[in-house]
Write a protein that binds this DNA or RNA. Structure first.
Lengths: 199, 199
DNA sequence: CACAAAATTGAACAATCTGTTCATTTTGTT
DNA sequence: AACAAAATGAACAGATTGTTCAATTTTGTG
């Protein structure tokens, strides 16, 4: 009797699952409602009892994805001990993000590919840009030292991070979240050392 | 009498221009061939004399965009003097890229937005990832020092760079290419200094 | 189980868009 | 002017969309 009880999740889940299955093979724009109904073995009309159109279907999947990701990140973050250095905290955040991504990698792989919907990478970046911003702005020394506009710094660092994630999911998770965290740190260290050397 | 002479570029250009104009207001998936013909004030059948379908139209615009970008970059790079340090060369490359982007910013703004086509940011990143790779691999010390897989490093650094570009074009070029180059260097410097400080 | 509510079905529908065809007209070049 | 290339208008079948509605099936609850 929960307030959040949803009637009829079963068919809705069936439709969403079938849709994702087709999305692995065809682009979003080429998929018809008929395709989805056929895959789910339901009447085409039934689709419209649950979703306005295929865009609504994708929106709802995307919303749930972001929600699940956020919840998982918050959950992991609640276990943080905040006695570390700034760098250690950044490392902890990175590990958290990689871990959360891993759970959603099949969906992310599709949504980030050309089978997905235009602009997804922007919405994805925006969604987790907030997580990073909150984390960074806790640090007074950071805010004081940063000379460039925050929006540009955030675009830079979150895009870089997403670049790693995209490569990772495209490689079908060829590394563990822990290995990815180390890889991330190694790259940062590499950049830090690089400017002391000459050609 | 050039080999590359194209018959009938006028109508083709008209169609492409009209299409881009509509793309500023509507998403690619919602635009019909009828919309394009109406905007260009041509017969719908004429569209099919020049393009297979609207996907072909977008493909051709995208190809030309990448071609133009590449040519412009190569042109600017041919003026390099290679007597600089590795860092100076990286700075020069960054300046070149920002300058090339500026010329194509109206189109890039649309193609990177949710009005464009899924996966554009991947193709875009891939296209200029090559430019960066070639530049990096010239440097022996770089190759020797890099511990992480090249593909991951490239994803990281090119995504970061594209993040800046996306923010820049979304801001309607609120800075000059020179300012963007400085901003880029500032961010790298910031990251380099950051790990020496505590919370 | 029985029964009512909820969900699904099948079929039909007008509307829109697609891609193609073809006869005709316009345009550009020699 | 004459010829070829390009564009037009109209028509066409085929797909897909989103909606409706009566009939049927499934589900949940007493």
């Amino acid at each position: 009797m929960s307030i959040y009880r949803e009637k009829n999740r079963k068919t809705k889940d069936l439709i969403q699952g079938s849709f994702i299955k087709i999305l692995e093979k065809k682009t979003f724009e080429s998929i018809t409602v008929g395709d989805i109904a056929k895959q789910a073995q339901i009447n085409r009309g039934t689709f419209y009892l649950h979703f306005i159109d295929k865009f609504d279907l994708l929106d709802q999947i995307e919303q749930r994805l972001f929600g699940d990701l956020g919840n998982h990140i918050d959950e992991l973050q609640s276990n943080y001990s905040s006695t570390h250095t700034f760098e250690k905290e950044q490392e902890q955040l990175a590990a958290t993000l990689f871990s959360a991504i891993k759970m959603q990698s099949p969906l992310l792989k599709i949504f980030l590919s050309d089978h997905g919907r235009a602009g997804f990478h922007l919405r994805f970046r925006e969604a987790f840009s907030e997580k990073v911003r909150v984390n960074l702005e806790k640090n007074e020394s950071f805010k004081a030292t940063l000379k460039v506009p925050m929006e540009y710094f955030l675009s830079f660092i979150t895009s870089a991070f997403l670049g790693l994630i995209e490569q990772w999911v495209q490689n079908d998770l060829d590394k563990t979240p822990q290995e990815m965290t180390i890889l991330y740190i190694d790259i940062i260290s590499f950049i830090q050392k690089k400017n002391t050397k000459k050609v």
